[in-house]
Design a protein around this nucleic acid. Structure first.
Lengths: 119, 119
DNA sequence: GCAATAGGGGATAAATTTATCCCTATCTGA
DNA sequence: TCAGATAGGGATAAATTTATCCCCTATTGC
């Protein structure tokens, strides 16, 4: 595994939340889990642009940060279900606010983002 | 400048907001600007862990994404002031929600983050 | 003249994050 | 028996982001 060479900043609330939410797919993972998509293969289908590998890594981090828990059913073929912890649940309204803002401003955002990419 | 080799996902609101907020210091920049710290050197003092270079780059991105505007006063020594656009202002409550959640859960967050770092 | 302040950016190195590729295991259905 | 579903991870490459270093403008104060 990759080992950090520099310590993260943990000064304020923004640093702290950043530390657990940074990661390309983490917010979406939390969101889809909150929507009832609990199994890894379901999440993978919901987020087809991510590779399975990265989803696993980010799920592990979310688990380490106690935002989700993992239940492994000892059956074959394997069955695993992720759920939000109570702590993780408190984050959903915040994520929802992010998504709502993005949706509300979709057109404008799309245009400024694309303009910058093409420039 | 670095040129992207892959296109970002712009499917949903979460993708869109992510595209304009990702960047180690962007949220803090928006926050401090909203608090009245408008000049580059002030922002640098508020965020001493970032190098001046990165702050400039991220400020430019925020400007391209129309979240902030830049006023250059033609005086010497130079004077520059950043302000939130009306669009940028709509983001402040969302950022505030992030910070509040982080502050409220500070102890728990600090402990799980540090635990993972040391493991 | 030199240092400090103010603001900015090119070139490059280092750090970090994502993606790719490949391998493990077992069961079901064609 | 081979394909596909299910879940997971090591090793490594590629992409991306941050950091470092150095250079520029011009003014004020020592």
């Amino acid at each position: 595994m990759y080992e950090r060479k520099t310590l993260p900043n943990l000064n304020c609330g923004l640093d702290l939340i950043g530390e657990v939410l940074y990661g390309k797919w983490k917010i979406r993972l939390l969101w889809f889990i909150s929507q009832g998509h609990q199994r890894p293969s379901e999440l993978q289908r919901k987020i087809p642009d991510a590779t399975r590998r990265v989803l696993n890594i980010q799920l592990n981090e979310l688990e380490d940060h106690e935002l989700i828990t993992k239940k492994i059913y000892p059956v074959m073929p394997p069955k695993v279900e992720y759920s939000l912890t109570d702590f993780g649940k408190t984050l959903i309204p915040v994520i929802s606010a992010l998504g709502t803002w993005g949706d509300k401003n979709e057109e404008h955002l799309r245009s400024v983002i694309l303009r910058r990419l093409e420039a």
